[in-house]
Design a protein around this nucleic acid. Structure first.
Length: 423
RNA sequence: GCGGUCGUGGCGAAGUGGUUAACGCACCGGAUUGUGGCUCCGGCAGGCGUGGGUUCAAAUCCCACCGGUCGCCCCA
């Protein structure tokens, strides 16, 4: 084969697509229960949107964006994440003026990140996500987290870990940032190269460095939790208390920083603890972003959301050995014998389909024997047998593939009989 | 972006320098002129990821590239 799918992309074939459909259906039903409405934004945006919101120092912007110039010379980027585009749409369409607040939104969208692919990390990836704009009620934080957990739980996943943290408000964060720089600067030379850069550009991210995690300075690093001001601390406490109220277990990890610039207050991640899941365990991540809408030119509007990788979700299901209840097999298969019957069968199945009956036939010119084999392969319970004999008698033979029994159905009663069978 | 590892018919998998590249599954046909799932028999299908090189001779050795996979960075 000459032309292959570009690196980091994949085809989703019918067998697999059934799972995607099922997951989407379940998640949409959950969203309906929680009263979240679907939003769809463009596949690509002006590069500037991500630079300004996600942040120039983040990995996403520095090395992962699918960025190109269009024919008009504009810098365009295939969206690497969903929050910024949704916030942009909120501002652009003036949804802040809509009396229905907050706006509770969900999406199923493709994202693109230029990374070295491996299992669970594609260049084109699919995310289900949720964004709530216009509420700073800690109960909404808990609702969003609960929604994500519910999605996983209703599919049957159990080996989950919810990790939460608070990054505090701007003031808390600035204080903490200062403390971190003061703490790490004396050890700067001992830290890894990445951390030295991070210390200057984005000190919070020094904390989630894996290389230096054993360094004594890392262990003695100040905790964000000690730098939360009164308001931030109280907010975080309320979020935790709401989670407890509805029985959502969590673990507080003061080192959970989240990479993107727009986050503040609540940050969370959901991981799989299933065995054999490999190095990548994050299934979903999100947080609050109270300054983002304003940053994008809208009125000061609080927001919170998460993104959930569907590819990783499928891996988690596999790791936990969960098979989704997929049930779309064929109801009827038509077997024909002879040319007369073959032509007539085409007319009949068209008629049956028109009446809502799910039926297929052979298109390979196979012998009857092979047609029955095909029916077996398709896992069909009933086969409609049509040959010269049946045509002459104006009936069709309905064969039950499980019992092997066959009964004659008058053609005039066909639809009625088959419809009843399905019940 | 860095490091390890792998790449043989549709799938799985032998072969590690030398006659026309095992085998299993799947598929097609026959035994059974119009009836399947079992059995038996037969058949279809690959020149070994791509491109160079070494050699009398390469799927087998070397190089580059592409792709998968694992790990790192980071995240979904």
């Amino acid at each position: 084969m000459k032309i292959k799918a570009p690196r980091g992309t994949m085809d989703i074939l019918p067998e697999q697509a059934k799972k995607w459909q099922y997951i989407e259906k379940q998640f949409k039903s959950i969203c309906q229960r929680y009263n979240y409405k679907e939003i769809r934004t463009p596949l690509f945006e002006h590069t500037e949107l991500f630079q300004r919101s996600v942040g120039d120092t983040t990995d996403i912007v520095q090395k992962e964006m699918y960025e190109f110039k269009d024919r008009g010379g504009r810098s365009i980027t295939l969206r690497p994440e969903g929050t910024a585009p949704v916030a942009r749409a909120y501002v652009e369409n003036k949804l802040y003026g809509d009396p229905k607040q907050p706006h509770k939104l969900f999406y199923f969208m493709q994202m693109f990140r230029y990374e070295r692919p491996q299992q669970g990390r594609m260049r084109q990836l699919n995310q289900f996500g949720v964004e709530v704009l216009g509420s700073k009620d800690p109960a909404i934080d808990a609702e969003v987290i609960d929604l994500a957990m519910t999605c996983y739980k209703e599919l049957g996943l159990t080996s989950l870990k919810l990790v939460i943290n608070s990054l505090g408000d701007e003031e808390s964060r600035a204080q903490y940032r200062k403390a971190l720089v003061e703490h790490f600067t004396p050890h700067k030379e001992e830290l890894c190269k990445d951390c030295q850069t991070r210390l200057e550009q984005n000190p919070l991210r020094v904390l989630d460095c894996k290389t230096d995690s054993e360094h004594p300075a890392m262990k003695k690093a100040p905790s964000i939790l000690d730098y939360l001001n009164e308001e931030s601390r109280s907010y975080f406490d309320k979020v935790k208390s709401y989670l407890t109220t509805i029985g959502v277990d969590y673990e507080v990890d003061p080192n959970l920083v989240r990479g993107l610039d727009y986050y503040n207050h609540t940050a969370f991640e959901i991981m799989s603890e299933a065995e054999g899941f490999g190095a990548i365990t994050t299934l979903a991540g999100g947080g609050r972003y109270n300054g983002l809408v304003e940053e994008l030119g809208g009125p000061s509007t609080p927001g919170i959301g998460f993104g959930m990788g569907i590819e990783r979700l499928l891996l988690a299901l596999e790791a936990e050995n969960i098979s989704l209840p997929l049930t779309n097999q064929l109801d009827y298969y038509m077997v024909t014998m002879g040319e007369r019957a073959d032509v007539e069968s085409f007319r009949i199945i068209h008629y049956l389909r028109k009446h809502g009956i799910q039926v297929d036939k052979d298109y390979q010119g196979r012998k009857p024997k092979a047609q029955f084999k095909a029916a077996n392969r398709l896992n069909v319970r009933y086969v409609l047998v049509l040959g010269d004999e049946e045509l002459d008698k104006e009936i069709i033979n309905l064969k039950d593939m499980e019992t092997g029994e066959q009964e004659e159905i008058p053609l005039t009663n066909l639809v009625q009989t088959l419809t009843l069978k399905e019940v």
